[in-house]
């Protein structure tokens, strides 16, 4: 038997803005032993609708089932699943280095330029560098800075925007209005 391939998927989950939803969503993952690589939540462009962006490694089959189980939660509006090539995505990373090491030579400055990073704040003690990009890019800068001493390093979860011409959520909301099923 061939083992199904795990791939990276990005889920855009839209929900009503109620307390406790994050817990409802994450338990769907934990129950199936799927590790969440990254998670970001914020208001969406439509007022009252919340958006969760979740990155996971899973098989295509698993992800389809997972998405349906999340959608089954009453307050979840819709789940869209994307492969990396269907979205534009970014993460942000912050690095804290000692200002001394920055002044000690021009290597750090070179790295900042080379990686398209920027300096957010300089104090006599420390300097905060910011870089946005994909995980491998922010990771690479981290590895380059490490020899000079990085006292703190944080990376945000992924945020993503689709390449689609049609806005999926709006189309979905419109469709909802047209195909209301009559219940007994």
């Amino acid at each position: 038997m061939t083992i199904p391939l795990k791939e990276e998927f990005t889920l855009s989950i839209y929900s009503e803005n109620h307390v406790g939803l994050l817990n409802q969503i994450t338990t769907v993952f934990t129950r199936r032993h799927i590790n969440i690589e990254s998670l970001t939540t914020s208001e969406s462009a439509i007022s009252g609708i919340h958006k969760f962006t979740v990155v996971v490694f899973a098989t295509a089959d698993n992800i389809e089932k997972l998405a349906k189980q999340i959608e089954k939660r009453i307050d979840v509006l819709k789940v869209f699943v994307f492969r990396a090539d269907e979205i534009i995505h970014q993460e942000i990373a912050l690095y804290k280095v000692s200002t001394g090491s920055l002044l000690g030579g021009n290597e750090i400055e070179m790295l900042v330029r080379q990686y398209g990073a920027r300096i957010l704040e300089i104090t006599p003690e420390y300097t905060v560098i910011e870089k946005t990009g994909h995980k491998n890019e922010t990771q690479e800068l981290f590895e380059k800075l490490e020899p000079y001493g990085v006292s703190q390093f944080v990376r945000s979860g992924r945020i993503a925007i689709t390449k689609n011409k049609k806005e999926l959520l709006e189309t979905y909301l419109k469709k909802l209005e047209t195909d209301e099923v009559q219940l007994n």
Partner: peptide
């Protein structure tokens, strides 16, 4: 009568 985020039956 209905809930926006909940579709009890599909078309």
């Amino acid at each position: 009568k209905s809930i926006r985020s909940y579709k009890p039956e599909s078309p």
